[in-house]
Amino acid sequence: MSSGADPVLAVDDLRKRYDDTVALDGVDLAVADGEFVAVVGPSGCGKSTLLRVLSGLEAEFGGRVAVDGTDVCDGGSDAVGMVFQEPRLLDWADVRENIAVGLPADVDPDAPAARERVDDLIETVGLGGFADSHPDELSGGMAQRVSLARGLAYNPSVLLLDEPFSALDRLTKADQQDHLLDVWEARGTTVVLVTHDVEEAVYLADRVVVLGGQPGTVESVVDVDIDRPRERADTELVALRREVTAVLGR
């Protein structure tokens, strides 16, 4: 699956330092259209930094990062949507307005077509009936789904997710993971998910990229060639999980 034509996301020898600390040292990554890639690694290996560079939040870095062939420094990051670790919602705005923040700049949020698009997304993420609710009326999982819908509203070439489920309890987390898979399969969005949860990575992704070391580099890439829908307890899946964990522990 990774051997597509031109990759949607191409990362070439990415190096990033904060003052004296080198966060990323020569990361290469290519993500094909429609692919679901998970990036795992211990804390402090630069996972979040990687996403910040991809989404254009870091202005200075070494190497080259391109989305749809356009360098992120030349507006390539415009094609990237991001779901942060925290929902990061506007707490004075209702769900509909929060999702509309993600609408592309050339879409008038008050136009009927845009409203319909937002309403569709509210249904897509399973929040029907909560369009007029405010973030303080939502549970953590629901708020994170609003954040996901906001990312989808943007209709990005690549949707980045930065440990979006890490703050959720186990049951909610499993629900949200399956939900994300449904949305991904239905919409065919290219997804890069950063997580420290190996089980989550192997269960969700087509490919698991293991970042390691300090500064962070790609330690290994594990292909997950298991048919979907997957069983969490699938023996092959468990074996892969062990493999990834073994690379991490190295």
């Binding site: 939040l57 415009d78 949507g81 990061r88 923040v101 592309p104 700049a105």
Partner: peptide
């Protein structure tokens, strides 16, 4: 700052 990053990621632009 986190909300400003959201605005940046979704290209809201200065005025918006």
């Amino acid at each position: 700052e986190e909300l400003l990053e959201v605005a940046e990621v979704y290209d809201l632009g200065r005025v918006e």
